[in-house]
């Protein structure tokens, strides 16, 4: 898929927090935010809210990619999110990638993991339900 064909993967919020698309794995976006002041909670560490914001953004980005591949346009609205904070994330690049466990007609279920240097030891994981409001013409 060319760069031009990719849907817009980042919201105003995501962009202003410094979230970037660092790459794609099997057409699933991997997002990253670096250890800037805007993400800091406890000194030298990520604020849980920033970690969660990155994971939410990764969930939306994966869904936008999947819908775009099907040629569908839809508005996404969060239903809920549950975050497990597994280990403190240091003020250094934090990555997140989502896995779509269900992409239904009206809702999707997505799991997300966030990691730093060792992908096998995630800093946080999340499960999210997202409402899908497809265009009337779809």
């Amino acid at each position: 898929m060319t760069e031009e064909a990719r849907p817009d993967l980042l919201s105003h919020y995501a962009r202003s927090l410094g979230i970037e698309v660092s790459g794609f794995e099997d057409n699933v976006p991997v997002l990253c935010v670096s250890g800037i002041d805007a993400i800091e909670g406890r000194p030298g560490h990520f604020h849980g809210g920033a970690t969660s914001g990155l994971m939410e953004t990764a969930a939306y980005a994966a869904l936008r990619m999947a819908l775009s591949e099907r040629g569908e346009e839809a508005q996404l609205k969060p239903i809920n999110i549950t975050v497990q904070f597994l280990a403190a994330a240091k003020k250094a690049p934090l990555f997140a990638k989502a896995r779509i466990t269900k992409l239904g007609r009206r809702s999707a279920n997505v799991t997300v993991e966030a990691w730093q240097e060792d992908r096998e030891r995630p800093r946080a994981s999340a499960v999210m339900n997202v409402m899908i409001q497809r265009d009337a013409r779809a």
Binding site: H12, Y13, A14, S16, G48, G49, G53, T57
Partner: peptide
């Protein structure tokens, strides 16, 4: 504020900042 918007269509605060505020 505009930088906290969740999408271009609705001028509403994204869910991420709300999560952060409630955590804090």
């Amino acid at each position: 504020r505009e930088e906290l918007m969740g999408d271009d269509v609705r001028r509403v605060i994204a869910s991420g900042p709300i999560f952060s505020m409630l955590d804090m």
